[in-house]
Structure formats: C-alpha cells, structure tokens
C-alpha cells in the first residue's frame, strides 16, 4: 500500500507556542556585546574589540571566575582524550588513515595504533603498510577512542582494544554531539535485541546484537549474512526513537533510549516518522522520567 504523507505548515500543532519554555538567560548571537568591563578574560567563543567583549558564536554565556566563554548551541565535535567516537575512513595515506569524525578537521588513525587481525602485537612492517587498504578501506566505519589532540585541534585516534574496530551491518545516525551524555560506557547491548554505540561525536551506531565472547575480533571478519526481519524492525525502531529524542533536544543515553523504545511500541515503526506521533512518544517519556525521578 502506498502512503503519501503531506501536511501544510499551518496545520502544525500549536502546542509548541502555548508551552513556551522559560527563556534561557544569557543567550547571545554573534557580535553581541557580552560586557564592557575590561576586568574579564577572553575565553572560547568570544573576541575583544574596542575594549568590549563580543560573542563570536550563538550560544549561552558561561563564566568561571574571571573567564568568560560562550558555549555554542550548535557545534562540530570538539574532541577530548578518552572519548568514544565513530568515524568513517575517507582516505588511506602513508602509515595512517584519515577519518571523518564530525570535528572541524579530519582525524587520523595511525597504523601503529590499530590492533592487527589476530591481535598480534609487533612492529608494523612494510608488509602491513601494503595491506592497509585490506584492513580498512575508504567508506568503512570504525569505532575508536581519542588518543591525543594535536596542536591544531586534529584528533588522533586508536583502536587498541577489541571493543573498537571496524563496524559491520547496521545503521549510522548523526545527531548533535551536545546531546550525547558522557558516561562510563558508550557501548550498550540493549535487551530488545540490538546494540548501540553512542559516539561522543554525535554519531550513533545501531546494529544487531553482538555476541561479546565470539564476535569481538576488532571487526576484521565481517558477517554479511542477511539480518532477520524482527531484528531489522528493532533497529529501525531504535533509529526512529533516537531521532525523535534528538528532534526534541532530549539528552541521549541508554535509559532515555530504552524509554523511547518502550513508549514507541504503541505505534508502528513507520508511523514514528510523523511529527504528532513523535511528540506523543516524547510526552510519554517525559512523564515516565518525572515519575521515576531520573
């Protein structure tokens, strides 16, 4: 059955207007004067002109003692050491891969900071360099950890643990990095039959459940068998749940995703693309969160 779902903008729910959130304080747009007092220090997102401190990005002003920063509302990913990220290989270079990680510059993954298939630990030879494209080629997705941040802000990644490495079948989502909650673990095997990796860089990877003992091989052996239909529906439902959360600017972590997933079970996966259904799901989650005090 073919379905076409068109609306006109005017029919959009008026609800948003009534339920105006309390106005955020200290909101600035680029060029706004933050202060004329010269006693403050210039932090990220600000610049000094004519002895006045201006904002250079749109966001919220934050002050720590004498330091004034503007935290942008929408930003690319600013890496921190130890973050879990998901990236896509875009180039194979000399002894390194260039990886796209939604940050300002492309990140690098050195040949010396990956686990070779079989988990061998040894010096990387010329042979290995020739086989680089065999391990990871352009377009491949990897999960990795930020090892170091270089002077220009470029990230250096490593995958020296069996939980990191090449990703197999699944769906990649891109949401705002600020919505991902920093947690102890970013790898979750959800009870509903799928696993997710919440990259700190705003990339979320949803894949069919992995068996931790046998499948943690760094992803060099790929399983291209068809995924069963029920698992696929779970993956699609999780995808739509996470996008619904992101659309309503809700923080994304394992509990909120599970709440969204459970609330969405009332609807078909397809219906979750409609705005009124997503706002209903979000209402249900908010109620449940208030109830359980999380």
């Amino acid at each position: 059955m073919a379905t076409v779902d068109i609306r006109f903008v005017g029919a959009r729910g008026k609800k948003d207007n009534i339920e105006t959130v309390e106005e955020i304080q200290n909101l600035v747009t680029p060029g706004d004067i933050i202060t004329t007092d010269t006693g403050f220090m210039r932090g990220h997102g600000t610049f000094m002109e004519n002895e006045k401190l201006h904002a250079s990005v749109a966001g919220v002003v934050e002050r720590v003692n004498k330091l004034i920063c503007v935290k942008p509302l929408k930003t690319r990913y600013n890496g921190e050491i130890g973050d879990v990220v998901i990236g896509r290989i875009i180039e194979v270079c000399q002894r390194r891969w260039k990886v796209e990680t939604h940050s300002k510059l492309n990140s690098v993954l050195m040949l010396s900071s990956v686990n070779l298939p079989g988990g061998e630990l040894r010096r990387r030879s010329e042979e290995d360099e020739k086989l680089m494209r065999h391990y990871l080629k352009e377009g491949d997705l990897i999960s990795a950890e930020v090892q170091n941040i270089m002077g220009d802000g470029c990230l250096s990644l490593h995958t020296r643990s069996l939980k990191y490495g090449k990703l197999g079948q699944g769906t990649l989502l891109s949401i705002s990095p600020s919505l991902i909650k920093r947690r102890k673990t970013h790898f979750h095997n959800l009870p509903c039959g799928a696993s997710i990796i919440l990259g700190n860089n705003g990339y979320v990877w949803i894949s069919p459940n992995v068996n931790e003992e046998t499948d943690n091989t760094g992803g060099y052996e790929q399983n291209l068998e068809p995924v069963p239909n029920d698992v696929r529906i779970v993956v699609a439902r999780l995808r739509n749940s996470i996008l619904a959360l992101a659309d309503h600017h809700m923080i994304i972590y394992d509990t909120s995703i599970m709440y969204a997933y459970e609330a969405s079970l009332l609807f078909t996966v397809k219906d979750m693309l409609k705005p009124e259904v997503t706002s209903e799901i979000i209402d249900l989650i908010q109620q449940r969160m208030e109830l359980e005090g999380t």
Partner: peptide, 29 residues
C-alpha cells in the same frame, strides 16, 4: 548490504521502517 537485504525481505523494512512504496513525511507552505 544491510540496506539491500532490508528491501529484499519478504516484509520489506527499510532503515527507517518504511515499506517500499511509502514516502517520508512532507511539509509544505
């Protein structure tokens, strides 16, 4: 491969849960 298999299924399920003949949500003004 994941996308391809999703469409080949007996009950097709695309990555956002749509069937083969469904449009995404549209808004017009």
């Amino acid at each position: 491969t994941f996308i391809l298999h999703g469409i080949q299924d007996k009950f097709p399920c695309r990555e956002d849960g749509r069937g083969c003949e469904d449009y995404r949500h549209m808004e017009i003004e």
